[in-house]
Design a protein around this nucleic acid. Sequence first.
RNA 1: GCGUAGGUGGUGGAGUGGUCAAUCACAAGAGACUGUAAAUCUCUCGACUUCGGUCUUCGAAGGUUCGAAUCCUUCCCUACGCA
Length: 297
Amino acid sequence: MPKIIAIVGPTASGKSDLAVEIARQINGEIISTDSRQIYRGMDIGTGKITKREMRGVPHHLLDVANPKRQFSVAQYERLALRTIQNILKRGKVPILCGGTGLYTDAIISDLSFPTVKPDPTLRRTLSKLSPEQLFEQLQKLDPVRAENIEKTNPHRLIRAIEIATELGAVPPKANPTPRYNALMIGIAVSREKLAERISLRLIKRMRSGMLGEIKKLHKDGLSWKRMEELGLEYRFLAQFLQKKITREEMLRDLDTAIRHYAKRQMVWFKRNKTIKWFPLEEQEKILKEVHAFLKQK
RNA sequence: GCGUAGGUGGUGGAGUGGUCAAUCACAAGAGACUGUAAAUCUCUCGACUUCGGUCUUCGAAGGUUCGAAUCCUUCCCUACGCA
């Protein structure tokens, strides 16, 4: 199995810079595992790395999608696998870096997502229904899946109905099969420290024209509704620009929303016992770990 | 100083004589997740607990009542209005 390195951690933990440093030392190329940085035009709000910050290291899967259209894990998986093949062919080391746990996992292991494509029309129709109604529908279509799905989660219910409509039933969850020999490195930051970094970063982003970025996206045709769907900075700044909330509310609520997000990320990562955690300051140790990993047979 | 409206859990804010440890929202904490994942969803959340319960609360002190967060009196505090 080819070797691959993954840098994970909550938002604002300092992954990007570390990944660049590692890439420079081991002749690597970076693949972003971030579900929002794939979109063009979403730069400041996603904290997308700049050309200058890349320091010559190739970065992949940034700006590969139009934010107007919904992107999916499966699309991401396809693009990423192809990219990794190419990097390996060039004799370089692929380094995954990003905060979307599901995306990272979908590369490292084959999660075998059901092959049913999203059906926008069906989704639009279903989105008008209440969770109870959705659940009833699913029960009729696929009683087995209905048995252990969250009755109150509209997204999941809709997807399950989508799959069941096409396949007759939702296939049982397959065991993930690894595709790569992966070294997973997590950046550990204390809760307090992370909260501080998040707040400072938010102020910085506001100062560097994040509102302008959102205005431009909207001017270029990205609907407020879609913007709010995109979450965090895009959601709250869009609400502010529509005058749904005040500036103070925006700043305060966004700050806590980002912290909540970081918490959810950590819940996801903590499940994965193969991740090796290091404080950001211990770069030397991390690099040692990486070199040792690459030397292994 | 006078008038008015208030003082309930970490916060906002219900409750206005009995079934109130206190609807609800937020914050906080713990989780779920298989083609929307920065999304979506769940649980806990006064104190103590052998997890079945136990105990103490509604600015303070008195009082009325079988019974008060809810009614009365005084005091303290806050907001607005008048001085």
